[in-house]
């Protein structure tokens, strides 16, 4: 096999086509599997059974699958952006407390009886505030392992968790149910249209900067010397990752490890070029969450598992294995 030394346009197109194909295959599986399993061709028949099957697929399974794709894409992208921003491959919105900050913001708004728009805005503010806090507290950590950064993130995440519990415990009974339901999150009924638009907007905004992001991940001074506007790029990464996290959390609740595992796994397989990693991470994150959702719906059917439990149960061992394998190669 020829050694891969740098990314070409052909390689980018080929890999994206393969990932799109994988997405379509997973989407088809997701539409066919569930409490009743269908075969794809059954949906095109004109029997009453087929009519009912079409209703199930189009009104229940399709929105849910699209929500999984979009939310997974947002979370994986947020992870990738935070990894570039903090120059640490272990950064993730769940680990660093961004998701936690978003949920504190949303719960506080729910407690005050705010409308759904205000809840989303408040979640966004919470995500921005927690990222800023971690960034401000740990930005001068120049150690090679950047352990202070991760510890600060974990502390902020725990603090956000405690605040969420506090808000839940002082909430009146009338609001409590809605708040708990919001926190657990659910892909069924998640507003995928808005989240999808946000995801697309962020991709269009960020992809043209991908080569700048490449050199930014090699260090701020190096990026400056090569003519990148490092300060503006950092603010862009900061806002984009926080918004992506906030939208993912308000759409589907707290789901962990997608932002950590997907970019990390793709880096090992595809290399480091953000021009490929950014779109690949979005599709890869979508596929991963969709696969997790299929498992959560089918493994103990008719009972459904929270999808966040599935991502953590499956993702953490995979992550550990990848880390182990990389350690041996070096």
């Amino acid at each position: 096999m020829k050694e891969h030394t740098h990314l070409t346009r052909q390689r980018l197109a080929l890999i994206m086509a393969a990932l799109l194909l994988l997405t379509l295959v997973l989407l088809t599986i997701s539409l066919c599997l569930g409490s009743t399993a269908y075969r794809p061709w059954q949906l095109w028949q004109s029997t009453p059974d087929a009519q009912m099957a079409r209703d199930v697929v189009l009104q229940l399974r399709l929105p849910r699958s699209l929500a999984a794709l979009v939310v997974g894409g947002l979370l994986a992208m947020a992870g990738l952006l935070q990894q570039i921003l903090l120059r640490n491959p272990l950064a993730d919105p769940y680990v660093l407390g961004t998701s936690g900050g978003a949920s504190v913001g949303a719960l506080a708004a729910l407690l005050l009886g705010a409308s759904s728009v205000l809840v989303s805005l408040s979640a966004g503010t919470g995500a921005l505030a927690s990222t800023l806090l971690v960034f401000a507290l740990a930005r001068h950590d120049h150690s090679s392992q950047q352990s202070r950064l991760l510890l600060t993130g974990i502390a902020v995440a725990s603090f956000a968790g405690a605040l969420s519990s506090l808000l839940l415990s002082i909430a009146p009974d009338g609001l409590l149910r809605g708040m708990v339901f919001w926190m657990l999150g659910d892909l069924a009924g998640a507003p995928w249209q808005v989240a999808g638009l946000v995801l697309l907007g962020l991709l269009i905004l960020l992809w043209p900067c991908a080569r700048d992001l490449n050199i930014l991940s090699h260090g701020q001074q190096a990026a400056h010397a090569l003519g990148s506007q490092t300060r503006q790029l950092q603010w862009l990464l900061y806002f984009a990752s926080s918004i992506a996290t906030a939208v993912a959390v308000t759409s589907a609740g707290l789901i962990g490890f997608i932002g950590l595992i997907v970019p990390h796994a793709l880096r090992l397989v595809l290399g480091q070029d953000i021009r490929l990693l950014l779109p690949a991470t979005v599709l890869g994150g979508g596929c991963t969450l969709l696969a997790a959702d299929i498992v959560s719906r089918t493994v103990l059917a008719p009972q459904q598992l929270p999808v966040g439990v599935v991502t953590a149960l499956a993702g953490v061992p995979v992550f550990l294995w990848l880390l182990q394998r990389r350690g041996r190669q070096q």
């Binding site: 030394t5 990894q83 120059r87 640490n88 090699h218 190096a222 010397a225 003519g227 880096r267 480091q272």
Partner: peptide, 27 residues
């Protein structure tokens, strides 16, 4: 017009030697 080789140049992420050399073409 101006290149700057800094003292610290370790990358947080894996990078091939050719990719590193190609970063010089960025501007």
């Amino acid at each position: 017009r101006m290149a700057w080789l800094t003292q610290q140049d370790d990358s947080a992420f894996p990078l091939t030697v050719l990719e590193k050399a190609l970063t010089g073409r960025h501007p």
